[in-house]
Write a protein that binds this DNA or RNA. Structure first.
Lengths: 136, 136
DNA sequence: TCACTATATTCGCCTAGACGAATATTATGG
DNA sequence: CCATAATATTCGTCTAGGCGAATATAGTGA
């Protein structure tokens, strides 16, 4: 029995939505940066060097499409790639993220991230520390 | 050395194009119907029960995006899913087609195809025979 | 060369969604 | 409660691309 409350749309429509969400360079870069980790919004837009509203808008799109999950932590929002989509959609999403990891642009984004915030992804808010350093 | 004449765009842009091409229900149904086979345009639009210009327009989009290859055979055009995209794009395309095969709508499209045109996909023009029967 | 068929393209209209700029919201620390 | 910082939303504008209807193009066979 399917979970109650899930007005499961036809799978073809689900897939269409997933691909629409993937059909934008900025969103692809965001998803690639998320990878298997949880990343804070400020780190995303610092790394990608995009205006904050732009990042926020694309994150909202990804959220509405169900491709990312959010966790609030005080003032900060931590995003990660969704892990419990309907199987077919999840498969496609995983394949996309996987494919993205080999791409030049996303590799450079990751390097930029490490250069700016340390060599590892932030798995949670540093205890008692600020997430976003007031860099400039 | 990369092949000459290929003005290889950045991989991230290639992927974006692929996902844009996949971001439409009609195109997804077409790609799923093609699967591993070569299918004639008339069979596509008879099967999907979509207006011929609609099918043609979407095929044109897929062609421009490089997701399908065409073979002309007299009056008929036979399409198949592309097989020699840049590796990353090809991987994504394959994953998409693969994911689509399990989807209800596309299964029904295939059944409809078989009901109308025989139990197997047309691999080439039937020798001497018309591709599209003047059904109605 | 002409009619016919399969396929492709064009046109006008309309909506989704991208962008930058501005503004609103939410949580925290004083 | 206020100021501030992080994040989100709204607004106006612009373009890609969807659709149906009409039309163009390209092979084929007489």
């Amino acid at each position: 029995m399917k979970q109650t409350g899930q007005k499961s749309r036809p799978a073809i429509d689900q897939l269409e939505s997933v691909f629409k969400a993937l059909a934008d360079k900025t969103r692809l870069r965001i998803l690639a940066l998320l990878g298997n980790n949880e990343v804070c919004v400020c780190h995303i837009h610092d790394t990608l060097e995009l205006p904050q509203p732009t990042v926020s808008r694309h994150l909202a799109y990804l959220r509405r499409a169900g491709l990312v999950d959010v966790r609030r932590d005080g003032v900060w929002m931590h995003y990660q790639v969704a892990r419990s989509l309907p199987p077919t959609a999840q498969t496609v999403l995983n394949a996309a993220v996987e494919a993205l990891t080999g791409v030049r642009t996303t590799e450079e984004d990751r390097k930029q991230f490490e250069r700016a915030f340390g060599q590892l992804y932030v798995m949670s808010t540093p205890a008692g520390g600020a997430c976003c350093a007031p860099r400039a």
